[in-house]
Computed example of a mutant assay.
Amino acid sequence: MAIELPKGTRDEAIASIQRYFEAHMDERIGNIAAGGLLGFFLEEIAPVVYNQAVADVQERLQARVSELDIDVHEDAFTYWRKREKPTRGK
């Protein structure tokens, strides 16, 4: 599954790459080169981040599902217990 960004997000990412190069590499990078670098990161590195995020979500969901019985548990056969009158002296 290819990871693609919406056009606006892609444009912002390219601008951010260009700004990073200017600030940290003391050189400018053009729009096409920054887009190529972004494409490389999306194809090569983004799947690792994506897969880790999916694994993290699965872990959290499994923890929530395992506690589901605690959250929604209902005691059975409580009709008569609710209606019994407490006896005096006990």
Rank of each mutant, 00 (worst) to 15 (best):
A34W: 00
S16D: 10
A55K: 03
R19V: 03
R64M: 03
I14G: 00
K82R: 12
M1R: 14
I14L: 04
I17E: 00
I17T: 05
P47R: 06
F41K: 09
A34Y: 00
A15W: 04
E22R: 15
L61I: 07
Y20F: 10
D56N: 15
Q62I: 02
R83I: 11
D69A: 06
H24I: 01
K82M: 06
Q62V: 03
A33D: 07
A53R: 09
L37F: 14
R64H: 07
I45C: 03
E59N: 06
R28L: 05
R81S: 07
I32F: 13
A13V: 03
W80T: 08
V54A: 12
E44Y: 02
A33P: 00
F21N: 01
N31F: 03
Y50I: 04
V72P: 00
V72C: 03
A23R: 13
A15M: 11
A53T: 04
I17V: 12
L42S: 05
Y79V: 05
K90L: 15
I17S: 01
G36Y: 02
N31K: 15
D75A: 08
A55M: 06
N31H: 11
K85M: 06
R83C: 05
A33C: 03
E43P: 02
G35I: 02
E43Q: 15
R28T: 09
V54C: 07
V49L: 14
R88D: 14
V48W: 08
E4G: 02
I32N: 13
R88F: 14
E22L: 14
E43L: 12
T9I: 11
E12A: 13
